[in-house]
Lab assay of single mutants.
Amino acid sequence: KHLIERYYHQLTEGCGNEACTNEFCASCPTFLRMDNNAAAIKALELYKINAKLCDPH
């Protein structure tokens, strides 16, 4: 559950690194913003595939 919350935060708030290159992070310049419901679904999907989590900045 904690990991899913981290994915959700990364998708909605980002890691804080303006030069982030993680396509699944709101801080990445090319990230496409999504609403909270879509972010919750995506967080579950990312958890299932063990996607990369950013280190908070």
Rank of each mutant, 00 (worst) to 15 (best):
D35F: 03
F24D: 11
L11C: 05
A40V: 05
A19E: 13
H9P: 01
A26I: 07
D55L: 11
F24C: 11
N36L: 12
C15P: 00
C28N: 12
T30N: 09
N37R: 08
L3P: 04
L44C: 11
Q10M: 10
L11A: 05
L11T: 04
T12G: 02
Q10L: 04
A40K: 11
I49T: 13
E5C: 06
Y8S: 09
N17H: 12
T30L: 08
S27W: 01
R33V: 12
C28R: 08
Y47P: 10
F24Q: 13
S27M: 06
L46E: 02
L3G: 06
F31M: 15
N37L: 03
G16Y: 06
F24A: 10
L32V: 13
N37Y: 03
T30P: 07
C25R: 00
R6N: 12
K48F: 01
L11S: 02
L11H: 01
N37A: 14
E23V: 11
A39G: 08
C20I: 00
Y8F: 06
K1R: 07
Y7N: 02
A19L: 10
E45F: 04
T12P: 00
L3D: 03
E13L: 13
A51L: 02
P29Q: 07
T12Q: 08
T30A: 13
A19S: 12
L44H: 07
L32C: 08
A38M: 05
E5H: 10
G16K: 09
R6V: 10
L3V: 02
Y47E: 15
H57G: 13
C15Y: 00
E45Q: 06
P29D: 03
N22H: 03
H57D: 09
A26W: 07
E18D: 13
L53W: 05
A26F: 15
L11M: 06
C15N: 00
N50C: 09
Y8M: 14
E18F: 05
R33F: 02
C25V: 00
T30S: 13
N17M: 07
L32K: 15
L53Y: 09
C25K: 00
T12F: 04
L53V: 09
A39T: 09
R33K: 14
Y47T: 15
P56Q: 09
Y7S: 01
E5Y: 05
H2G: 10
E23Q: 12
H57S: 03
G14Q: 00
A26M: 06
T21H: 13
S27P: 01
Q10G: 03
C20A: 00
L53Q: 14
C28F: 11
A40D: 14
E23A: 08
K48Q: 07
A43W: 00
E13W: 05
L32G: 11
P56E: 09
F31K: 07
L11I: 05
R33E: 12
Y7E: 00
H9M: 12
L32H: 07
N17Y: 10
T12R: 08
E13T: 12
